[in-house]
């Protein structure tokens, strides 16, 4: 297992704040621009999730699906995903890097080669949306051999037995999906999320990050008050979608990431 993710959460805890986990799809809108965008986002985050574009992103809403479409149309390959990870790692030796995506991409490469290349690129963990704990046999050995954390999801529909299963099979952190829905939908009720996170904590010693549907700094601050980490994805991706001009996209992303960073640090930037 990677020790880097554990260190990230220790550091944040020592500073009395939640970790900011930022997501962008690799290669969106093209591999060249994606490099600058990822570096810009990384500068504000404790952990960066790099999405592996996939033709059929079943758990994602329209915003992240469109990012996959843009990335693939621009000719993004899995080699670009590793290269972009390497670039982020080179500039940010201490941050957490997690690859996120769907099973068929690593499966096509073979989990062993995939894990080897991910680890060589400086990746700490992998989150595959459609590999639940029960199907872990397909990837576990390869992830372990290359010291990659296997990040597992929990949702409002996960009963206690599944929470325990995720604790046993996963490592790094638990990713609590704050709503029953796809990425980018409206965030669930904050009180429900708070009590579910507390319940997961009572069953697990692992850090719990909360994501899906966090779009405003105010929401991020609310979640940061009780979670170990706040995941923001669609909100950052939508900055790219909204700005066809490359510099404008960078500026918009920088501003929104700074706002989220401030929110998760326990203070608000002036509007």
């Amino acid at each position: 297992m990677s020790t880097r993710l554990a260190q990230v959460f220790e550091r944040c805890r020592a500073q009395g704040r939640a970790a900011l986990v930022g997501y962008l799809t690799a290669g969106d809108p093209n591999p060249q621009q994606s490099r600058e965008l990822l570096l810009t986002l990384a500068a504000h985050c404790d952990i960066i999730e790099i999405g592996m574009p996939f033709s059929d992103p079943m758990a994602d809403g329209p915003v992240i699906e469109a990012a996959s479409v843009r990335a693939l149309a621009a000719g993004t390959h899995i080699s670009d995903v590793f290269e972009l990870s390497r670039v982020v790692r080179q500039v940010n030796p201490d941050m957490g890097i997690v690859l996120m995506g769907y099973a068929n991409v690593p499966f096509a490469m073979g989990f062993e080669l995939f894990s080897e290349r991910a680890a060589a690129a400086g990746v700490d963990g992998v989150l595959i949306v459609d590999i639940p704990p029960e199907e872990g046999a397909i990837c576990d050995a390869a992830f372990k051999a290359h010291a990659l954390d296997r990040i597992l999801l929990l949702s409002p529909t996960s009963p206690d037995e599944r929470i325990r299963l995720a604790c046993d099979e996963g490592s790094g952190f638990l990713y609590y999906v704050s709503l029953t829905g796809i990425t980018g939908a409206d965030m669930g009720d904050i009180n429900d999320i708070r009590s579910k996170v507390a319940h997961i904590r009572s069953l697990s010693g692992m850090p719990v990050c909360v994501g899906f549907g966090i779009k405003t700094a105010a929401q991020a601050a609310e979640v940061a008050a009780f979670a170990d980490g706040v995941v923001v994805g669609s909100h950052f991706v939508s900055q790219i979608a909204a700005n066809s001009d490359a510099d404008a996209a960078l500026e918009a992303l920088d501003a929104s990431a700074a706002a989220m960073q401030a929110a998760t640090s326990g203070f608000q930037l002036e509007a």
Binding site: A103, I131, P132, E134, P156, V177
Partner: peptide, 12 residues
Amino acid sequence: GGRFAAETLMQP
């Protein structure tokens, strides 16, 4: 075969 599904769908 198998059940390669998102966590939210595992219980349903």
